[in-house]
Design a protein around this nucleic acid. Structure first.
Lengths: 329, 329
DNA sequence: GTGAAAGCGCTAACAG
DNA sequence: CTGTTAGCGCTTTCAC
């Protein structure tokens, strides 16, 4: 900056004013400074500025476990919202290690980030990262503490949407094949579906929910179980698109037509799965990118507005994406 | 820091020495300072330190297009290697927009990052981001300029590995189904496979390579084409795991057994695809995480070592991952 | 309109 | 051993 000042024949203070459009300057002077800056390829040092301003225009993005398939769309949304405020994200991968995570929190604090977004690839609540002097928002995996702001998708509402769609298309004998019962998302989806069925005065067919894992292999296995049980069913609501795909394959290979004989609906709207499925899969979109966007927007708001964040748990709605596995739209 | 100094009854300089373990200090004094720091929850300001040292212990990670499935493992590797140097990554998503990218480059420079990793989800070379005063390394998508350091996987060698495995397991009539010819990765894989076949004194069966897109649907379509052509074949090397899965499905449904009648091999080692495939898919692992790790390590080396980066193009080897689609190991 | 000076939080060099 | 001073690159008063 001193160089620019010298080249333009002014003082450092004047360069500052010229570059930031502040203060009273003669147009000619400003132009002279800008020219000099361009000539020297001068980029103001954001650190030095941050030191004065007390802000870094940086937020930390910290994962509970590891950045994965679900974290990616969330990060996209975060990046999107931050971009509007000229803010960049510092990436920290907790790798599921509490100590590592604490280390990152300290590092982020010492770097004076303006705020932190905490995320994880599992839906289950996690211990808060501690009481920090900067705003923190939890996305996808909620914080266990009600004093934090947490934002996630409404799995139960998504499941209701799915079941409502099946009922609306005249299906009544609905089975549910899903992931492990210890996963919160599986439990929430099951209870949402159960509630929607109850409201319609009915329940799952056969009385059962098939808990397993999130894989296609389990979807295939579960479909076999259903077929062998002798129970009549005309629809299957699956806890994930992967499971749904497995179910679709086994049904087709057993001579059941989807959607004519059995209507099928998944969860996640994972494009490669839903689109490669035969037939293409109707599913529930959890709007993860929107989750990230809202989280970052809330964080920005708190940062600009003096640091206070309204605590609470925000559940953003899921959407129904209709493809062919549930018949015509 | 002034507060800590006051509480410990020493000067700021002494606090600095105590915290960083530098200088000659009486143990008692050091302890007093550390206690005071803990009591006040003091975290030294990394910005201020960076201002002095001229380093920020931060690197930028910039994508050509968007962070996606291929970028994720790369980032994991980058993060991994950086962690060793206590360095954090600033995320910048170029979104395929040149202007946006240039904006990010300026931002990163003004933040005085120690270096930049440029990546993209496509393998095709990209224009360099410009001549910067800091080291830059390109991963996955190479830089068009030979003056840059670029690191990517050896697609051709991976394809050779695949074909060699097929030949070794006594297959001789090999077809190739792959992605769009305009994609460099598709071309490289094809030429690697062709070379391996030529070395064995043969070529692709029927004389053809089936170019298409990377989808399962194309895999299914291509398999139909192969079957209808009347051409005999006992193996298919696919340009991606998705394609291979589509091929596997259609072969099975047409009564051809995999691997007994037709041996099948994919590319990418995308776990959800390869494992859900029936039978589980033998495939080529491009070692993307390793790519990221090496890239970041090279960058670190250059940073520590005064900024010079040996230019060139580094092709890291792929590995063969044997599952069931090519018969017993 | 513009320059000089003080200060953001820290470290390094030198006194004492 | 510890305090003092200067300075990293910038912004912001306040004189001139």
């Amino acid at each position: 900056m001193t160089d620019v000042a010298a080249l333009a024949g002014v003082s450092a203070g004047t360069v500052s004013k010229a570059m930031n459009g502040r203060g009273q300057l003669r147009d000619a002077t400003r132009q002279r400074v800008l020219d000099a800056a361009r000539e020297l390829g001068f980029q103001p040092n954001a650190l030095a500025r941050g030191l004065l301003e007390g802000r870094t225009y940086t937020v930390g993005v910290l994962t509970t476990d590891t950045f994965g398939r679900f974290t990616l769309p969330i990060m996209l949304g975060v990046e999107d919202a931050l971009g509007a405020g000229e803010i960049l994200a510092l990436l920290c991968d907790g790798r599921g290690d509490r100590l590592r995570e604490q280390h990152y929190v300290r590092t982020l604090l010492s770097r004076r980030v303006d705020g932190i977004v905490v995320t994880g690839r599992r839906r289950d609540p996690r211990a808060p990262i501690g009481n920090l002097p900067i705003p923190v928002v939890y996305v996808y995996a909620l914080s266990e503490s009600p004093d934090d702001l947490s934002i996630t998708c409404n799995d139960a509402q998504g499941a209701e949407l799915a079941v409502a769609h099946l009922l609306r298309t005249r299906r009544s004998r609905i089975a549910h094949v899903t992931g492990p019962e210890r996963h919160l998302s599986a439990r929430l989806r099951e209870s949402g579906a159960r509630r929607a069925l109850a409201e319609a005065g009915t329940g799952f067919v056969g009385g059962g929910v098939l808990w397993g894992d999130w894989s296609e292999a389990w979807g295939r296995g579960a479909a076999q179980i259903l077929l062998r049980s002798g129970e009549e069913f005309d629809a299957v609501f699956c806890g994930s698109d992967q499971i749904a795909r497995g179910v679709a394959d086994t049904l087709r290979e057993s001579g059941r037509r989807v959607p004519e004989d059995v209507s099928l609906i998944g969860f996640d709207n994972w494009d490669v799965m839903a689109e490669a499925c035969r037939p293409p899969l109707t599913t529930i979109e959890p709007n993860l990118t929107e989750l990230g966007r809202v989280a970052a927007a809330k964080l920005l708001e708190a940062i600009e507005g003096g640091g206070h964040l309204e605590p609470g748990r925000l559940l953003l709605p899921c959407d129904l994406v209709i493809r062919e596995s549930t018949g015509a739209a």
